[in-house]
């Protein structure tokens, strides 16, 4: 089975490119302490804002810190933030969606009304919550992104479960006396796995983008810890006269988010039991 999936992905060139990119990024993140040419926090105020050169491949920032080293450490920070946040949101989204869609009636009504309440809040309430309870440190940023982004998935899963519920194979399983949890996790879950996987991979990208948006407001990961998001938003102020400060983090976010999305797409096709 697994070999089949791998061979399917290998045939899909965009997904393969995404997968290679992803592995590369994870490797870079893991190796950051050893391959960074300099300490990401070391300032050299005489070399402020110097453009890319042989000494500093990606230039230096407004405190004379090596941008390449900061980018490498930023890979770590950004990926960890995204993975944890997506883990949280996928867990809640799937669970709530399945239960509501499968059981229907009261479970559905209560859970979906709760989801409805949450869905009525636009993004800026997320920001309010960040400052209401918490300080914008890295752990809180992950939790807030995760806890506020599961509702979409819940509705999607619930919609799928709702239309699958009346399908023959589910009806058959129930007629044969399968327990609810068995029907839920053995029969329903695999059939809604594809949208969950797609949503989770899109979610990694989404979380990286949300962190950068929070950074734009100054509420993301705080300096001196480098994340791509806070580097980009700091670089924004220099977009016209020190382009390297925003272009490299911007491109890093772009390629990473794309890598995860392309891979997720490929995975979706490969996991599809009917193709």
């Amino acid at each position: 089975m697994i070999r089949l999936y791998i061979s399917r992905i290998a045939r899909d060139r965009l997904a393969l490119a995404g997968a290679v990119m992803m592995l590369l990024l994870i490797a870079l993140a893991a190796a950051a302490p050893w391959i960074s040419p300099a300490n990401y926090a070391d300032q050299n105020l005489t070399e402020r804002l110097s453009p890319p050169s042989a000494r500093h491949w990606l230039g230096t920032d407004d405190l004379g810190r090596d941008v390449l080293s900061r980018m490498l450490w930023g890979t770590r920070v950004s990926l960890v933030v995204a993975f944890v946040a997506v883990g949280i949101s996928t867990f809640f989204g799937t669970l709530v969606g399945l239960i509501a869609g499968y059981f229907g009636r009261w479970a559905d009504a209560i859970l979906m009304r709760f989801v409805d309440i949450l869905l009525c809040f636009p993004t800026f309430f997320l920001i309010l919550m960040v400052i209401a309870f918490l300080e914008p440190d890295i752990v809180n940023v992950m939790i807030v992104i995760g806890v506020t982004s599961w509702t979409g998935l819940a509705r999607l899963v619930r919609g799928e479960a709702l239309s699958l519920r009346e399908r023959d194979f589910i009806l058959a399983a129930r007629a044969l006396g399968a327990s609810n949890s068995r029907v839920l996790f053995v029969h329903l879950l695999p059939n809604v796995a594809a949208p969950i996987v797609v949503s989770a991979t899109l979610g990694v990208g989404g979380a990286i983008l949300t962190e950068s948006a929070l950074s734009f407001l100054g509420l993301g990961v705080q300096p001196p810890d480098p994340s791509w998001g806070n580097m980009l938003s700091a670089g924004k102020d220099y977009i016209y006269f020190a382009w390297w400060l925003s272009v490299f983090p911007g491109l890093a976010i772009l390629t990473t988010v794309m890598a995860f999305n392309l891979f997720g797409e490929g995975l979706r096709d490969a996991l599809d039991p009917r193709s």
Partner: peptide, 28 residues
């Protein structure tokens, strides 16, 4: 202010003083 904090952090590090930085939203 946050730039000043980061620079002072490095300057104090040179004499062996550890200064952590927390940046907080204005009202809070």
């Amino acid at each position: 202010r946050s730039l000043s904090a980061e620079i002072i952090q490095q300057q104090l590090k040179k004499i062996g003083v550890r200064m952590d930085i927390r940046v907080i939203e204005w009202s809070a």
